[in-house]
Write a protein that binds this DNA or RNA. Structure first.
Lengths: 238, 238
DNA sequence: ACAAAAGTGTTGTACGTACACCCATGA
DNA sequence: TCATGGGTGTACGTACAACACTTTTGT
């Protein structure tokens, strides 16, 4: 599913009087807010350096190359602009209102999950991480797009195991619960959460424990036989 | 949500070495199979009269005009090719694999529901209705697209009231149950179905009854305060 | 009267929620 | 020993599936 090397040169864009196809991605990850003890959902945005909405923050993206599939374009453009390689990538929606940009642009938007261990230390120039719940005014219709992506994320966390796309290989039940709590924006009962996820068959207990504070917590792994998310007959193709 | 008059002339397409954007629609409706007493899901397909896959059956669609929104393009192209005006229209997915067509085409695909009373008597030339469960080999990747649309329909019928998009204004609970049974492909308990749908708050009982066979059945209407389908922050825009 | 569909009642199981309680560790 | 999070037990309410049963019509 992941990225490949970017092609050396890109095909010239068609004349501006034609519809052009762009690809953008809403990338979600979790960050522990320094002061408090809660996690928050954050997304990386790119400061625009060109004419439409120059200086404003926008979703990472770029033009679709004529020789690459949609998902490949999403992987490539987000890697080029942010240097990131998410663990999960799924198409969100195609946005194509006539007035969403000065020239006619249809944007195929993807959304992605980034594991905590995939976040690089030094950030790329012109990229900044924002609390998804408290965004500034973004370029184009990107506020609307992020809202929709958040809605999809919250929905999907309820009926699939995508939350695992935000965690490293081994984790405690408290880690997993924190992910759910950050996405859903409410506290969950530890006892009930444990039983739910244990009965779902998606977790494999290891014989390792995480120590350091109070009683050690058992570490779990994901059962790779269970799909991360049910995408129906489409197995992740375009 | 519905169609408008088609523009008199369409902008010339960009040169064939650029990516073009097409819009197609999977239109679902129900038909009572003549012999038996069951309903089946049927979709209209158009016979291709041009080069790629000429003679094969394909989804109704056409090129996106540079001056129209995506949903408007879906409404227009399906009206032009089939003469239909569905009661419900929602974006399905953007298909853009490089090899899905001889030239590079990104298809924004919609899916639609047509009420029984919206089906015209005489069918347009080159349009034929097919049982969705028994399709021939279609042009391009359209078999795959229909499979995905069917999956979405079956999913969505479980957590929204879209089934109502397939019925006339007034209907009996048996009518509604038939819709669910046709979509889900299994029989439902009339008693439990009644309670479920009654408690959902989406139905308004009228004081009219349908007579004709056995005990008369009460007619119901939809509560228009309840959305047909939850589309999140997107209220049906593109 | 009888068949058949409309509509009601009852029961059991599964599952989510609330919350009391015990366990194991660091300090 | 105490505070804290890990982990177990239990009781209650809702939702759904199964199915027996009553009601109302056409024939």
């Amino acid at each position: 599913m992941m990225t490949r090397t970017a092609p050396a040169q890109r095909a010239a864009h068609p004349s501006a009087d034609a519809t052009r196809v762009a690809v953008s991605t809403v990338i979600f990850t979790l960050r522990r807010v320094p002061a408090g003890d809660v996690m928050q959902v954050v997304i990386p945005l790119v400061r625009r350096t060109r004419d439409p909405h120059e200086g404003q923050w926008a979703l990472p993206g770029g033009w679709l190359d004529i020789t690459e599939d949609l998902e490949a374009a999403a992987s490539r453009t987000l890697a080029e602009t942010t240097g990131l390689a998410p663990s999960y990538l799924e198409q969100l929606y195609a946005f194509g209102a006539v007035d969403r940009s000065p020239t006619r642009v249809v944007s195929i938007v993807y959304w992605a999950l980034l594991r905590a261990d995939e976040i690089p230390d030094e950030t790329v120039e012109n990229v900044r991480w924002f609390d998804a719940a408290d965004l500034p005014r973004l370029a184009f219709d990107h506020n609307e797009i992020v809202d929709y992506a958040l809605w999809r994320l919250r929905n999907k966390v309820g009926y699939s195991r995508i939350a695992h796309g935000l965690l490293a290989d081994e984790f405690t039940l408290a880690d997993l619960r924190e992910v759910y709590e950050a996405i859903l924006g409410r506290r969950l009962d530890p006892a009930n959460f444990r039983r739910q996820v244990e009965n779902s068959g998606t977790l494999i207990p290891t014989d390792r424990f995480r120590t350091g504070s109070h009683r050690p917590a058992r570490l779990y792994r994901y059962n790779k036989d269970v799909e991360l998310a049910d995408r129906g007959p489409l197995g992740g193709r375009d």
